[in-house]
Nucleic acid binder design. Structure first.
Length: 424
DNA sequence: TCTGGGGTCCTAGGACCC
DNA sequence: TCTGGGGTCCTAGGACCC
């Protein structure tokens, strides 16, 4: 049964690289990489870099020679900048369709089902051009009767530079033969070989197979949905409302390994404060605090240890959560371990405005909680005005030795006037 | 010497209850 | 010697995403 739905996926091309190029237009056409924290991995690559065979997530140090001989430019990730550009794009897209779902920092789904658009391809091409003109980043748009087909269409749009950045697809479209199983949304590293063994090589093969077979290959109901979506039957809709997050975490690989407890404590304090800030921004409270610490997973004797604790009442108080995090660490600290990475994970979240009734029988705790929350609001206001981290907890200051390395950061173009390029 | 960070959903299996 | 069965809740781990 054909679906009468229509979805668009707007997907930025090489998003982080494109963001850097807005402010450094001379880098268009040159090979550019944006690196992860610690300048460890390539998390975004320009087309020039892709065609040199450097894969997504490649450890930068392993490609030193190719990088040098091709004069590849490397940026340390400037994720605030990318978030800012992303928000501008979201704002623009919200004006183009009644229903939009921000799927990730560089992708949004639009529900076009109820719109009257005479020429869908022309309409999308116009959007591609306007985004490039008004925001400065190149995008591809895929359109189809299900989200999965729209997603595959956007892949096809990116692959072929002749199609003006837009591909419109439908179920049974022969071009789906070009999308190999490992490139399909929802099929990952573990499942792709299973499809190959079963003689299923591309998206069209899946649509021509059957529900049970695909379900069995994937091993869960996700397989069934994949089959249906590729056959043109929509299982997913465009989720408009931003659902509250279920988990909020902050994790980091250290700039240098360490066995010193006070350095790890400082890192955990900073990560806890970071997670708590995001928790408050999301308007939520947590009831479970977990930490983990680990050695280098690429070295012999790798170990990762975690501990967690349940709170007596929901909280978003940085001071309280920092001290809980460090308390958990003291239970597992081993002076012989070379710590390489740490993280703080907040779970069992609830909206802050639901929480007061929790302490009906413990008035004292309620009052303390309320005064803590208002303290945190003041801290956030001051930090927002005078710069992140202006007010912080003493433990965060014990050491900065764990901070990730960031060799090639670009300036904060969109948040600091003084870092904008000089205009002559 | 150097390998990211932040999420979601699904399933199996154990604990517990009646 | 014989030793139920079904439901629910919770958690850990796997797989996937960008």
């Amino acid at each position: 049964m054909p679906s009468n739905k229509l979805f668009a996926l707007v997907d930025c091309n090489n998003f982080f690289v494109s963001c850097e190029r807005i402010f450094r237009p001379e880098l268009v056409g040159k090979p550019v990489i944006v690196a992860s924290s610690n300048d460890g991995c390539a998390v975004a690559r320009s087309n020039e870099v892709k065609s040199l065979g450097i894969p997504m997530g490649a450890p930068v140090f392993k490609y030193k020679e190719i990088i040098a001989s091709n004069k590849i430019i490397i940026f340390s990730g400037n994720f605030h900048l990318y978030g800012d550009i992303s928000r501008r794009l979201t704002q623009f897209l919200s004006q183009q369709a009644p229903t939009i779902e921000v799927y990730s920092i560089d992708e949004s789904f639009l529900d076009l089902s109820d719109m009257v658009i005479p020429d869908i391809k022309k309409w999308a091409e116009n959007i591609v051009q306007r985004i490039f003109r008004e925001i400065g980043v190149p995008v591809s748009i895929g359109i189809g009767p299900t989200k999965t087909l729209a997603k595959l269409a956007s892949e096809l749009a990116k692959k072929n530079p002749n199609n003006s950045g837009v591909v419109v697809t439908s179920a049974g479209d022969l071009s789906l033969e070009q999308v190999k199983v490992e490139d399909i949304w929802g099929i990952g590293r573990m499942n792709a070989p299973k499809f190959r063994v079963a003689g299923i090589d591309n998206a069209l093969d899946i649509a021509n197979s059957n529900r049970t077979k695909i379900r069995n290959i994937v091993g869960s109901v996700m397989g069934e949905r994949l089959y249906l979506e590729l056959s043109g039957i929509a299982c997913y809709s465009v989720g408009t409302e931003t659902k509250p997050q279920k988990v909020i975490s902050a994790t980091r690989t250290f700039g240098h390994d360490t066995s010193q407890a006070y350095i790890v404590e400082s890192a955990l304090a900073d990560l806890a404060a970071r997670a708590c800030l995001n928790l408050r921004k999301d308007g939520q409270l947590t009831e479970r605090v977990s930490i983990f610490v680990s050695s280098n997973r690429f070295k012999k004797g790798y170990s990762k240890i975690s501990r967690s604790v349940r709170l007596d009442y929901p909280s978003a108080n940085s001071g309280q959560i920092i001290s809980l995090a460090n308390n958990l660490f003291s239970q597992i600290y081993n002076p012989k371990t070379k710590y390489h990475r740490a993280g703080v994970i907040l779970s069992e979240l609830s909206p802050e405005n639901n929480s007061l009734q929790v302490n009906l029988f413990d008035a004292q705790a309620s009052i303390k909680q309320m005064s803590n929350n208002s303290l945190m609001k003041d801290v956030d206001t001051i930090n927002k005005r005078f710069g992140r981290g202006k007010i912080h907890y003493a433990t965060q200051d014990n050491s900065k030795d764990w901070l990730p390395r960031k060799k090639d950061a670009s300036p904060a173009y969109t948040t600091h006037w003084e870092e904008l390029p000089k205009i002559h």
